[in-house]
């Protein structure tokens, strides 16, 4: 990564390339590339090299072992549950926060950021105690025969909590930007509120909503801190993929850890790509509907 353009603030060619007039190009781009290379790229390359070193056969044997498959299944199932919850809850929150005025709205809006600001370990600790037999919620749910702690529902709960802001915060600005004339036209044409929502509003926010759901899902797949508290971490039952990778490390099985981490990394990068494409679609949609 030494390919830093060597002709930045220098005067030659400056009049033509107006954007290059500002100084500090070499310094700022150099700093950026150095930081990203040392902190992000080289470590990620170390993981990929480890994968290449172990070879496809060994990699495949590790990631298709019964325990790893079970861990991936549990992680995916819980992440799907968490994402479905957030898809609905996030949509509701975005709608209510944009469309209605009521006392306490600003506090409600601020609460949406709690899951980002609160350390995941603290969230996990609190949710676990809250839903265990002597917690505020567990005291009601446990006698009713609904155990949450140490089940897949607990994992989904922790995932849902930590990824709340994604859907709300991607849908909110799009709803705010929507031209009220579209809906007013639908009203004039005699459409009922539900019809207007499904035929006019929802199509307009769909790309942003899907992008938010994708990032929420990606975040849920990688979540660790909140889950280790609440899951109970039983192999084949409540052991998530990230935890299995962690356990392999503690056993000094670096290949095992690297293989599982590579699968999670591939998932993360694919979902990042999907989310970027959806955002791109969303921004085109927004421009078109103005």
């Amino acid at each position: 990564m030494t390919a830093i353009d060597a002709s930045p603030g220098a005067p030659h060619g400056a009049p033509i390339r107006a954007k290059r007039v500002l100084p500090g190009f070499t310094l700022s781009l150099g700093t950026t590339l150095l930081y990203l290379t040392l902190i992000v790229l080289i470590p990620v390359i170390a993981l990929i090299l480890k994968g290449a070193e172990m070879g496809p056969e060994r990699f495949w044997r590790i990631v298709t072992s019964a325990r790893a498959v079970a861990a991936f299944q549990i992680t995916l199932t819980a992440a799907v549950i968490a994402t479905i919850f957030n898809a609905l809850y996030g949509l509701l929150m975005a709608w209510v926060l944009v469309r209605y005025e009521f006392p306490g709205k600003r506090i409600l809006d601020a609460l949406m950021d709690v899951p980002f600001a609160l350390p995941t370990a603290v969230a996990g600790l609190s949710l676990t105690a809250l839903f265990s037999a002597n917690g505020w919620f567990g005291a009601i749910l446990h006698p009713a025969g609904i155990p949450v702690v140490y089940t897949i529902w607990g994992i989904a709960l922790a995932m849902a909590f930590t990824s709340v802001p994604f859907v709300v915060r991607t849908v909110q600005p799009v709803l705010e930007d929507m031209d009220p004339a579209l809906e007013q036209a639908a009203v004039t044409l005699g459409a009922r509120p539900w019809t207007i929502f499904t035929r006019v509003v929802f199509p307009a926010i769909l790309p942003a909503w899907l992008a938010g759901c994708t990032t929420a899902f990606a975040r849920s797949l990688g979540e660790f801190g909140a889950i280790v508290f609440i899951a109970g971490n039983l192999p084949f039952r409540t052991e998530i993929a990230a935890l299995l990778a962690f356990i392999r490390l503690e056993e000094f099985d670096y290949n095992g850890a690297a293989a599982i981490a590579l699968v999670l990394l591939a998932f993360a990068l694919v979902l990042l790509l999907v989310s970027n494409l959806l955002q791109f679609w969303a921004s085109r949609y927004r421009e078109a509907s103005r």
Partner: peptide, 11 residues
């Protein structure tokens, strides 16, 4: 978008 656990493993 990368899980912190993966970051730790990379390091």
């Amino acid at each position: 978008s990368i899980s912190p656990i993966i970051a730790g493993i990379c390091y």
